[in-house]
Design a protein around this nucleic acid. Structure first.
Lengths: 227, 227
DNA sequence: CGCCCGGGCTTACGGTGTAAGGCAAGGGTA
DNA sequence: TACCCTTGCCTTACACCGTAAGCCCGGGCG
């Protein structure tokens, strides 16, 4: 079907698992993961759909792969004395990555086999905690707590209708008007609060993060002095 | 095609939006949301696919609807003096609902129009906080923090390969064996920790929850005495 | 009685993931 | 040089998906 008009030495870079996955990330960023199909992905790479299957096993493999790419974009925490600063930085870096690729959080639920970047990331986090003197048990607590918060915040952030501080305020305004204020009075009040010019939902992130880090630090110190 | 063998007065209860949505929840619980199709859903109800469209607008409408059903299963917090107990109970109830319907958390990312049960739930949470003396700002902090934790924990819990305390320990064991221990030493250590007979990941939930609630209480008291 | 219309039905279209296999070019070995 | 095997692309085909368009029957109301 392709009427071979190009010169014989068409210098198309060869297909590669890496090239496929990165194109998939770009496509998902552009259209959302719902519109990511093997055919569109192939088209993006100037190739037919079935050609992709020489480089990835199945679509699930692609999805696993792009989730791992997102994890690879999170800065690894450096270990040293200051576990708190390290955890804070990686939490902020994680949120940024999950914001750059909003589809990633929705994908995580269905993936089961983590990729190398994911494993490396988790290992680095645990290393920081353990070398800072956390017991395995305390490290498990901190890990579970921090990761839950990070993913949960990202989930809320991407599913929230308003982004605030954009012209999307108008959008939220109409939402608010469609809300029966007498039926949901406190919700209405909160949406109004969130619509104030100064408010940025993103700032909530660090408030909660610091509260959690302080709580962990308190527990850590208590354990260190108590036992 | 259906060879009308049943008596004329076949007493099939009439199709209804509610019946459709509840069947969809049941089907998603059974097969996962990935295998929920309009055709299968129709079949479940003894009907053809297109008949569903007299009761729901499109598949997205079904998905919005079943997410709202999950929210309707979360106990509404009762307001009163003890906001902490109320938040604790609703957090636990929320996790149970999200565990009963593991597909819900993955759907939340893509939904944008919350249903009435969702709105009612959020309004009730905010009411508890506000009537307990939280400022709007503090209520926003507490709300964001708690919900992030709840959803994030649920997300991790459903995507975690191991469930522990089942025979699935074997599964995790093989995962662990396939993990190159020298490459991810801290992760390996943690998986081993999680495989101990006494360990239940579920217990982590309340540890983190209480840490968060204590932190919020401290901030709340500080604000009350300080201002 | 006649009409309308709600709520089921069939058909059809363009999309999806992927199994099965074809074909051309290059590289290794006899 | 002659062969053949692998690699990496391709076409074809199938079963399934969401849903637009429109048919048809039965019951309620003018």
């Amino acid at each position: 079907m392709t009427t071979q008009t190009e010169p014989i030495s068409a210098p198309r870079t060869p297909l590669t698992r890496q090239r496929v996955l990165h194109a998939a990330v770009a496509l998902a960023d552009r259209n959302g993961v719902g519109l990511l199909s093997m055919r569109k992905l192939a088209q993006e790479l100037g190739v037919e759909a079935m050609s992709l299957y020489h480089h990835v096993a199945k679509k699930d493999d692609v999805l696993d792969g792009i989730v791992d790419i997102v994890f690879s974009e999170i800065d690894l925490p450096e270990d040293g004395a200051d576990w708190k600063a390290a955890m804070r930085e990686r939490a902020i870096s994680a949120r940024e990555a999950l914001r750059r690729h909003p589809w990633a959080i929705g994908l995580m639920e269905s993936r089961s086999s983590p990729g190398p970047a994911t494993l490396r990331h988790h290992d680095a986090v645990l290393r920081v905690l353990r070398t800072a003197g956390f017991t395995v048990e305390m490290a498990a607590h901190a890990f579970s707590l921090l990761d839950s918060y990070i993913y949960g915040f990202a989930l809320q952030e991407t599913s929230l209708p308003f982004e605030t501080s954009e012209e999307l305020v108008d959008v939220a305004q109409t939402i608010l008007e469609s809300l029966p204020a007498d039926e949901y009075p406190y919700l209405t009040e909160m949406v109004e609060h969130a619509l104030q010019p100064g408010y940025a939902f993103a700032a909530e992130y660090e408030v909660g993060l610091d509260l959690i880090l302080d709580g962990i630090a308190r527990a850590h110190e208590a354990a260190a002095s108590g036992g």
